[in-house]
Design a protein around this nucleic acid. Structure first.
Lengths: 286, 286
DNA sequence: CGTAGGTTTGAATTGGGTCAATACAGGTGG
DNA sequence: CCACCTGTATTGACCCAATTCAAACCTACG
């Protein structure tokens, strides 16, 4: 039996299903299913559930019924942090990402999951999914790999939260978003963040003012351009460099031109050059 | 065919295997396997691998060959954080806990895993494990639940790292250790930590001096007694309360008595007792 | 429009980090 | 058995990045 090659989702043949570019079908392409298996899998999918901005996909404590794949849009998951209602954002989810893995252990969702913008999802009843995993060994292996990958992702966040300064956290986040969007065929340098500074801060372990300042500093250093929720990455390379750089402030200072207008910038730089060594000297052409 | 009831591991019947109280067999008890399945599972286990303090179970980048269960002892896993060799502790592992889930996605370990003290483990080749998961649907379901539980645990760390002050982090850690040891039949209030302050700090996103100060403050507030690596939890209840309390410093201040010498002498006695006895011995059913 | 929610920025505060000094435990070898 | 030595732990003094508090400002949307 011929194997379905792991081609780009956008080119996948929708002949055996009513949901063109079905995100769930696309998700299991790397599992390298046979055509039969692929049809079998596709047959259990509930296609194209839509939810509006601020609408909940599910609340904490609700039972797990289905796993969902994001087909379009953006969602966040968040969890209660203490006795009283403080919530912390646990993840942001976008196209091609699976929702509900954390509920399998207990059979109940621990997270609220809510749409940050209008979103479409494909779902599959979890009991069906388990059944298919047993019927299709390749799917089982793929699922194990995906669960493991989720664990590794979370370890990445733990590293971010455990030891990085504000600018590195934001830089890592931007690179992460960039890669995830690029993987789905969107621009890797130019996007609109669907979450507020406060939600982002909650995710990154920072207050919203600190997030805002971090954006400003990265912007001053010309690594990005920010206009409210719109982000333009000016240098993916430097954004990556800053994460490994031991002295973040110095790294940013090297690339920063001070002030918001030419005159002020020139004056302050001139003063600095006179007073100190030339490490604050702006880039050529300023 | 009769089902193996999910009884306490320490009472499990070792009749169908050479490894009494085999930690891996115990791990799959909640899966509620039939006797046949249980024997089948047990048959693939490589029993009783021993590793010494500071010995590596595996290094980062080494291929995943086996999953391991900790039978006794304590290990840590850690990951490279940046270009140069800074490592961050990702997890501490003790009796009854599974090692290697994060390697399934890529087939390579991302973490170094090293023993904090002499440890014994049971292992199973991952290919065998996958095969058994397919052959035994109950095992597959159990494994999925365990992977999901691992994701949930990591979310807990993310919450800890994202928003808690030093004392709360240490309090949570102590409660966590307490529960894990209690689940294996050890004392839930009285134990010896196998890791250094630095390793603990790395895990909790703090410098070792800060960990030390946090221990001191919890100790001054009579919630715990600390003597170097020996910890005696004086009030599990208050330790839980402090996590929900909005104003940690005030909470601690309320309970702090200055200059109580009698406490100190009791602590030192307790510490002596721990040092003399083998603290790793279960209190029940030895 | 007008208002509420979101963002930016400044100034003051503080919790944790850094640096440094000392104490202690546990292992080693004499 | 003891003396030594190294790695670990505690504690104090000072510093700095992030938080808190506050004031504009913007923009999205009814």
């Amino acid at each position: 039996m011929g194997r379905v090659s792991p081609i780009n989702p956008s080119k996948s043949d929708p002949s055996h299903g009513r949901c063109p570019n079905c995100s769930f079908t696309a998700w299991c392409l790397p599992a390298n299913l046979t055509l039969d298996e692929s049809i079998q899998f596709h047959g259990r999918i509930k296609h194209d559930r839509r939810i509006q901005r601020n609408e909940y996909l599910h609340h904490a404590n609700s039972p797990l019924s289905s796993l969902y794949m994001v087909k379009s849009g953006f969602l966040k998951t968040s969890r209660m942090v203490d006795g009283e209602g403080r919530q912390q954002v646990i993840s942001f989810l976008t196209v091609g990402e699976l929702v509900g893995l954390d509920a399998i252990g207990t059979g109940k969702h621990l997270c609220d999951t809510v749409a940050l913008k209008e979103s479409r999802l494909c779902g599959m009843r979890y009991v069906d999914f388990e059944e298919l995993c047993h019927a299709i060994p390749a799917l089982q292996r793929h699922f194990h790999r995906m669960m493991s990958a989720e664990i590794v992702r979370n370890q990445g966040i733990m590293i971010l939260l455990g030891g990085m300064c504000a600018e590195k956290r934001v830089a890592m986040f931007l690179l992460n978003i960039s890669r995830r969007l690029a993987a789905q065929g969107f621009s890797e340098t130019h996007f609109r963040l669907p979450m507020t500074r406060e939600e982002l801060g909650s995710y990154l372990g920072l207050k919203f003012e600190t997030v805002s300042r971090a954006f400003s500093r990265l912007s001053n250093a010309q690594l990005i351009a920010v206009d409210h929720k719109n982000v333009d990455i000016r240098s993916l390379v430097q954004l990556e460099q800053i994460i490994d750089d031991h002295d973040t402030r110095q790294f940013l200072a090297r690339h920063t031109k001070l002030g918001t207008n030419w005159v002020r910038s020139e004056i302050e730089n001139a003063a600095r050059v006179i007073r100190q060594s030339d490490w604050t000297r702006p880039l050529v052409g300023v």
